Simulated scan of single mutants.
Amino acid sequence: MRTWKAAKWPVYHVFVAALAFLMLYPVLWMLFSSFKESRTIFVTANRLIPDSWIWSNYAAGWAGTAGYPFWHYIGNSMVIVVISTIGAVLSSSLIAFGFGRLKFRGRGLWFALMMMTLMLPHDVVLVPQYIIFTKLGWLNTILPIVVPTFFGMPFFIFLMVQFIRTIPKELDEAATIDGCGKFRLYLQIIMPLIKSSLATAAIFSFYWRWEDLLGPVLYLNSPEKYTVSMALKMFLDSESASNWGAMFAMSIVSLVPVVMVFFIFQKQIVQGMSTSGLKG
């Protein structure tokens, strides 16, 4: 028994390390491919380490495409990400406060309808949304991408409602006795107590908007307003030679903000997701 317990930990760590390597292999393959010549990337796809290290891929990729450097597209993405994240977090928290604390007729029905939208495929609403934004004259602007986030995100609303339900209602009663109104109750009492869920929503919003390709492809027409995902696509040309090396190099660069956000806020992610199912 002691021998088995002594051998169990090394076996466990070897298994976890092998699984982690398997999960990270696509990223490692992309990283090492960013140092290969474009014409040899898929010829030597079965070999991870490049025969010769081509550092110029990063310089070529950073120079950008369509007349704009790659940092220009990063800036465009950051503008969309920041505005969308602020809108999603603020609107979702306000709606969640209404579902979690306010009493109104049909609250259960409206909450159920909101939850049903989580099961609605995004592709179903693409055509109606496109028609609406076209008639509003919002094409080739970031408005169709950022404005809908200011009307709440169902997943974030559900997450925050679960947090709000864990807060004792005695705090509401004490604040009301002291003359605290509904909006002040939301702003000064509830918001500070659901910081974990707010951080979790902000992180997920950052991830989803940073990697979004469909929205920019539908609504942005000029290269000046393209995002990182669209800039990466422009390295590939169906009519001439595609610069795979530069594309993989800038793909690695585009992962840096995502990885930084994860490692900085991983505690909030775990805490927010682990407590989202609790009820008071």
Rank of each mutant, 00 (worst) to 15 (best):
M250S: 05
A201K: 00
S222T: 08
V89H: 03
G100M: 09
V124F: 04
D172R: 04
F21V: 08
I194W: 07
F21Y: 14
C180Y: 10
S196L: 11
V14Y: 02
L126I: 05
S197E: 01
V124I: 03
Q162Y: 09
Y73D: 11
L185P: 13
Y186L: 13
L48V: 08
F204I: 00
K8R: 12
V146K: 11
S52Y: 07
P168S: 03
K103R: 10
F265P: 07
Q188F: 10
Y12R: 15
G98C: 08
L24M: 11
F204Y: 01
L136M: 06
L213A: 05
I74D: 13
S242M: 00
T166V: 02
V79M: 14
A199F: 00
R2P: 14
V270A: 03
D123K: 08
M78V: 00
V217T: 11
V79R: 10
T40M: 06
Y58F: 10
L278I: 01
F265Y: 15
A175H: 11
S251C: 04
A174E: 13
L90A: 14
P216N: 03
R184D: 15
Y219C: 02
G181D: 10
A59P: 11
A246I: 13
D172T: 07
I189C: 07
K195V: 05
K279H: 05
L102G: 03
V258E: 06
P121M: 02
H72A: 13
L102I: 04
Y58N: 09
I194C: 09
E211N: 02
Y25M: 06
A246L: 11
L48W: 07
G100F: 09
N46M: 12
V89Y: 04
N76F: 14
G215S: 10
W53C: 01
N243R: 12
V261H: 00
W71Q: 09
L198C: 04
G181T: 05
F206L: 02
L185Y: 12
N57P: 08
Y130D: 10
T3H: 07
S91V: 04
A45Q: 09
I83M: 13
R39A: 14
V146C: 13
I164N: 06
F158E: 02
L159V: 12
V261M: 01
G106L: 09
A199K: 00
H72Q: 14
T117N: 12
M78H: 03
F70N: 10
I252V: 15
R47E: 12
L232R: 07
A59Q: 15
A6Q: 15
T117D: 12
M116T: 15
D172A: 05
L24K: 11
T149V: 10
V146G: 09
L214S: 01
G272D: 09
P26G: 05
A246C: 13
D172S: 04
A202R: 05
R47S: 11
I190M: 06
A88S: 04
T3C: 07
W62P: 14
F156V: 11
V89C: 06
L31N: 01
L278P: 00
L109R: 05
I41F: 01
F265V: 14
L90V: 12
I189V: 14
L171R: 04
Y73G: 10
S229T: 15
R105D: 15
S34F: 06
R209H: 15
I177R: 08
L136A: 06
P223E: 03
I142S: 15
Q188D: 08
L213R: 03
I167H: 12
W138T: 06
